[in-house]
Amino acid sequence: MYPLKKGKFAPQAHVGIPEGTFEEEHGRKGFYGKSAHLYHAHPPTGWIRFEGKLRPHLFDLNKLAPSDCRDAEGVPVAFLGNDDVTLYVSRRSQPMPFYFRNADGDELYFVHRGKGIIETDFGPLTFEPGDYIVLPRAVTYRVIPETQDNFFLIIQSRTEFDQPDKGLIGHHALYDPGVITTPEPKPNLDDNREWEVRIKVEDELSKVVYPFNPLDVVGWKGDLTVWKINMRDIRPIMSHRAHLPPSAHTTFLTEGAVVCSFLPRPLEQDAEALRVPFFHRNTDYDEFLFYHDGDFSVRTISSRDMRRCIRAAFITVRIRRRWRISIIRRRPTSMRSCWTD
C-alpha cells in the first residue's frame, strides 16, 4: 500500500515533528516491516493507571540467588522464558567441578562482572566484563572464574546465534570480524581422574562419567565453534540527522530473538531530528533491557535535559512474539571517563 498521509504529520519519520505532538511508531517485524507514525497530542507513556499483565516490569537481578553463587555444584537460575528463549543469571564464584553440555539450546553468555576461563571442547577462552561468549548447543564446557563476585546473563536459545546481515554498510560495520576470538585446541591429556559431564535436556540432567578428561580434542576444523566478542569492540553506527531504529544496533540473531548492544555514542544533533525518547509499538517483539554500565535512562530522558551523548552500555534482547521487559542497573558516574575521552 502506498503510504497514506492524514491530518497533521511529519513528511519524514523522525524529522520535523509537528509542534505540540509526540511521534509514535507503530510497526511490524521489528522495525523492518510495515509501519505507521502516529502524532499524539500527549506522550504515549503518560498514563495515570495501569492494570493487568501488560504493564512494564522491572527486576532487580542483583537480588537473585542462583545456587551456583555459593555452591560449586550449583546451577544458574532462570527468571524469564518463552518457547524461543530462556534467560538465566549465574553468579558462579568457584570453578565447576564437572563439565556441562546444554542439549536444550545454544547459549550466549554475557559477562556483566567477573574474570576467568571457560574450558570448551574447542579449547579455552578467557573472559572479562563486556564479553559475549557464544556456546553452540551441546558444546562441553566448564567455567573457571578467577574472581569471586561474578555476574553472567545467559540467554538460552532454541535456535543458533547468528551474526546480522550488515547490508549496505558493509561487513566491517558495527565490528570488524577480525576482533572475534576463537579458541585454540588445548587437550587435557594428563588429567588422571574421573570427570562427570552433566547433559541438560528438557531441563533435566543426565550424567556421564569418564575415566579421563573429556576435553581431549587435539585439533578441530569447521565453521561451528565457540567464539567471543567484547562489547568495547562494537562501534555503533549513528546519524546526526536522523534517529536510527534499535535494529541498527543488532549484534546477534536467532529465529526467535534479536540481541542488540547499545553503546556510548553522540545523539542526534540536527535541529529537526527526533530526540529520544523514541516512542514505539514494536508489535511483533517484546523487549528486555539489561543495563550493563552507565547512566542512560530510556524513559526519563527528555528533550529538556537530554545530553548530547548516551553515556551507557546496555543490551537488549528483542524476542519475536512480543514481550517488552526492562531491566535497569545504574552506575551514575562509571562512564564519565568514556565521555571525557
Binding site: H57, G81, W323
Partner: peptide, 30 residues
C-alpha cells in the same frame, strides 16, 4: 506474560525480585 501468541513468562525467580509498582514510576511527577 505479555502476549497471547508466544507469551513470555515471568518465572518464579523473576517474580521474587520484581518491583511491582514500576509502571507508576513512568508517570510524570507533579
Amino acid at each position: 506474560m505479555l502476549d497471547g501468541l508466544n507469551p513470555i513468562h515471568v518465572l518464579p525467580a523473576g517474580e521474587q525480585v520484581e518491583w511491582q509498582e514500576y509502571w507508576a514510576s513512568w508517570m510524570d511527577k507533579k
